[in-house]
């Protein structure tokens, strides 16, 4: 893949992240592998809506040097670590999607319902908490996603890794549905079989917190 092709994929994916509600504002980040040593990655703090291919930095994942008009995402080391762990990974997206973020805040490994297992595997692991851009977050997340399509980043969001960008988006969508189902099933269990609805959630939570 040429750097130009990779940059275009990243720009298109950024707009898609916003459209599909997987991030807001400039949060989250995306990268696309070019070759064994280089990736195209979203720049730090630039709005997705106005990104152009020429704005996308190219990062050397071995020595972390980069080229381009804007510096790469603050999570560049995380992306580099995920690519370094598996040569078959060619696209990585880090999202702040709602249901996955809730599971990430619970810092739990989530069992995957049968219908999502062909895409997500049996279980989604949660990487330990670390400050954004920290070594702890990088190492923990790379380990949690190694050999798996997705992982939670404690109190932060999720990371999805795949052979191409389309597949990475498919994983993010499946992850959101699987986490939504896990949350609804958990609600049903703790509320004694209540059906999920806004009123039921409010009523249960208010009652639970008033005790």
């Amino acid at each position: 893949m040429t750097p130009e092709e990779a940059r275009k994929i990243v720009v298109d994916a950024g707009k898609r992240l916003l459209r599909e509600g997987l991030v807001a504002r400039t949060w989250g980040n995306i990268s696309q592998r070019i070759d064994g040593k280089h990736i195209a990655i979203t720049p730090s703090g630039r709005p997705y809506e106005t990104l152009k291919p020429e704005d996308i930095p190219i990062l050397n994942i071995e020595d972390m040097t980069w080229e381009g008009p804007y510096k790469p995402s603050g999570e560049k080391k995380l992306h580099a670590a995920v690519y370094a762990g598996d040569e078959n990974i060619r696209a990585v997206i880090h999202t702040h999607q709602m249901n996955a973020s809730t599971c990430a805040a619970a810092r739990k490994a989530v069992p995957v319902a049968e219908e999502f297992r062909p895409i997500l595997g049996d279980e989604i692991l949660c990487a330990p908490y670390g400050l954004p851009g920290s070594k702890k977050l990088t190492k923990g997340t790379a380990a949690a996603v190694l050999g798996r399509p997705a992982a939670f980043m404690a109190n932060h969001g999720a990371v999805c890794a795949a052979a191409d960008m389309e597949c990475a988006f498919g994983i993010a969508a499946a992850l959101e549905k699987a986490c939504g189902k896990y949350i609804r099933d958990s609600f049903s269990r703790v509320s004694g079989g209540e059906e999920w609805s806004s009123d039921a959630v409010r009523s249960h939570y208010v009652k639970d917190q008033s005790v």
Partner: peptide, 15 residues
């Protein structure tokens, strides 16, 4: 939403 829904998962962790 996160604070509410993590309570169904056994509780969330505050930063």
């Amino acid at each position: 939403k996160t604070v509410i829904e993590t309570s169904f998962l056994g509780g969330g962790h505050y930063i």
